[in-house]
Design a protein around this nucleic acid. Structure first.
Length: 189
DNA sequence: TCAATTTGACCTAT
DNA sequence: ATAGGTCAAATTGA
């Protein structure tokens, strides 16, 4: 599911920090709360990279960060890289709550009693299928959402115009996961 | 009205 | 100089 990253060339302070990498076909909820603090276009990469830090960094001095970047179009694939670890009580508590009381859509995947086992691993992902509820994922799904949304106002006949909303993305990805056949769609890039 | 996100500017290492 | 990472003011939305 995830693996310790081997981004260890050079001797910068960052490369020595422990990092964890995870590729996922959906934007998954890892049980922690994150605050986005930046977004960058990466050269030779098709999609923007989003930068998050733990929401409790300020009042708990939690050093955890993560980067999320879409790395593939056809089957949507997102790479999340975690830097450091959580030492904040608050988000740890939240992740435990998420693990022990998964929501209805994901509970079927946690039927076996491995909550403790999951918690001892790092990072503590709650469920591979819990549905993201925040707007945080829209830019990773469609980095140009804002511009396209504005284009729609003036050129609704543009075939590249996106007329789906964020909710449709979730439904679409969920559908692709829950059914064996893939749902054809065109993101228009 | 307030807090999270967006986004260009700024910083730092290469 | 360039690319990646972070800051912070403006924007957005609940």
């Amino acid at each position: 599911m995830y693996y310790q990253s081997t981004i260890a060339e050079g001797n910068s302070s960052r490369s020595k920090a422990l990092t964890w990498e995870k590729d996922s076909s959906i934007l998954f909820e890892d049980g922690y709360e994150w605050r986005k603090y930046g977004q960058k276009k990466i050269i030779n990469a098709k999609y923007l990279r989003s930068y998050y830090r733990c929401s409790y960094k300020s009042d708990e001095e939690c050093a955890a960060m993560k980067h999320v970047q879409r790395i593939q179009e056809d089957p949507p694939l997102y790479r999340t890289i975690y830097y450091g670890h959580h030492n904040c009580k608050t988000s740890l508590l939240n992740s435990e709550i998420t693990l022990l009381e998964p929501n209805s859509t994901s509970s079927m995947f946690l039927s076996f009693n491995d909550s403790l086992q999951i918690k001892e691993q790092y990072p503590a992902f709650s469920s591979p299928l819990s549905v993201p509820t925040k707007q945080e994922s829209i830019d990773a799904i469609n980095p140009y959402h804002n511009q396209i949304a504005q284009d729609q106002l003036t050129s609704s006949d543009n075939p590249l115009s996106r007329d789906y909303k964020l909710e449709f993305d979730y439904v679409r990805h969920a559908t692709m996961l829950s059914s064996t056949k893939s749902v054809p769609f065109n993101d228009g890039f």
